[in-house]
Design a protein around this nucleic acid. Structure first.
Lengths: 194, 194
DNA sequence: AAATTAATGCAAGGAAATTCGCGTTATGAT
DNA sequence: ATCATAACGCGAATTTCCTTGCATTAATTT
């Protein structure tokens, strides 16, 4: 795109909005370029020329969405930060984003290729690592990024995908267990009492 | 299907085989009923009549596949049982099944509807619960099914979906951590520490 | 503000997917 | 063995999806 301004931006926005709308309203099997064209008011040919396929369009939408996620909290207490973060994850998984994420992941899977983590995911991990590092500098007992992902994020995604999205309260429970484990392990850990 | 025998069974088998073949060989965007028809040697119209849509067909394939998973181990030691189970999960997630599962899950997600766990999943949970119950009768310190799912299964799926499938060794690590947590909590009591 | 040319809209044409009617096969019942 | 009919194969009709060439609009440059 050599002319990103004005009209092109409007078209892009209209199409993205239409896709998000349709993802919430209809089943994914009905999702098609002609439908998006109709809902967005943008001509089919334009969509085909700019995105090529529905897959590419979905990926574009997902990237836009995940880039716009709010930045992580900095309350000064790791426990609070994690509670806020976990609650945010749980909430987002309840709000129609799961199908989006899933589809993007599915679309990324090509037979021979080795899968790579999405850019948005890498960035999110970087932010989390930063949160942990800052906490450690404050002298708190800190879990590793791996532990955070395995004990908090993974269960939330797992539930959202295979059973039912969890509430913020459940997310809080996961965080508390993580911190319990960390506390048990640390011999002289400075307990993070608020 | 009022006549499941003979020819119908052969058709079903041929179609399933073709789908699995195509899932491994081509990207999912190329997957289509006409293609499956060509590869399987079964006529398009037959596939459309029996399954209706590609989604339904994929679901059928997944159900067949997950019903055929091996039963759980019974070594007499919970730790060994869990190690074997976790290794089996890790292995299956590395062998081209992930795309299958993913697709089926995605296809199951319809906007308004409340999602329900797949029959295969429910059955698997029942078996796991049984494993835990038997272990408890032997007087071992036992995690809950929820803990098992959250601390072992969820991370394995999470990694497989969003980054890279884990090795059996990693799976073993998850199991060990789970048992560590259980041991720390107390050997015999089913105390619920919130 | 005039010129240049991306980017879009439009409409037609081709390709693929899906459905339908009908004849044929072979399963399960008598 | 015979019968009734479920399930399939076949080809055509229909619908939907995708592409292409050309005209039009408007973003960017000078």
């Amino acid at each position: 795109m050599q002319r990103p301004g004005g009209r092109s931006a409007r078209v892009r926005s209209a199409v993205h909005t239409a896709v998000l709308e349709l993802l919430e309203a209809r089943s994914w099997e009905e999702l098609s370029v002609p439908l998006v064209a109709e809902v967005s008011g943008v001509h089919q040919a334009t969509i085909y020329r700019r995105w090529g396929t529905m897959s590419a369009l979905l990926n574009d939408v997902v990237n836009e969405w995940s880039a716009s996620t709010a930045s992580l909290p900095r309350t000064g207490s790791l426990r609070d930060d994690l509670h806020i973060y976990a609650a945010a994850v749980a909430k987002s998984l309840r709000d129609g984003n799961v199908p989006l994420i899933l589809r993007a992941v599915v679309l990324e899977i090509h037979p021979g290729e080795r899968r790579k983590a999405s850019p948005a995911f890498v960035e999110r991990e970087r932010q989390l690592q930063l949160m942990l590092d800052q906490s450690e500098e404050r002298g708190e007992a800190v879990p590793t990024l791996t532990e955070l992902l395995e004990l908090v994020v993974a269960p939330l995604y797992f539930y959202a995908l295979f059973t039912e999205p969890r509430t913020e309260a459940e997310a809080a429970r996961l965080v508390d267990r993580l911190l319990d484990i960390v506390a048990h392990r640390g011999p002289d850990a400075t307990a993070a009492s608020s």
